[in-house]
């Protein structure tokens, strides 16, 4: 594609962008100072720590997922088709 965007427009936009970022960003720099530690209640860690050298005492019972329905925040989230997402046939048997 032959470039047609005016050099002037690019330069002007860059000047505005540089001016905009010169004002202090609202981003929270304190997170950086503490080695990426999450604030309480936030899932900011994203560490995905998953290895284990321990067994688990919690029994992971196999459930029939086709009889389970999602019961998290999706139940209250408003979507174009209304609240909840359940089709009639999806209710627990």
């Amino acid at each position: 594609m032959k470039t047609t965007i005016a050099t002037l427009a690019l330069a002007g936009s860059l000047a505005s962008a540089l001016a905009a970022i010169a004002t202090p960003a609202t981003a929270d720099d304190s997170k950086e100072k503490c080695y990426g530690i999450a604030m309480k209640g936030q899932n900011d860690c994203a560490a995905g720590t998953g290895t284990t050298c321990a067994g688990t005492s919690k029994i992971d019972y196999q459930q029939n997922v086709f009889k389970l329905v999602p019961k998290g925040t999706c139940v209250s989230m408003k979507t174009p088709t209304g609240h909840g997402m359940l089709e009639p046939g999806m209710a627990p048997a």
Binding site: Y35, G36, I37, A47, G50, T51, C53
Partner: peptide
């Protein structure tokens, strides 16, 4: 645990 520190960078290595 070695395996949790096998990413390239980020907070795990900073810590």
């Amino acid at each position: 645990h070695a395996e949790n520190y096998m990413g390239a960078g980020g907070p795990p290595h900073a810590q």
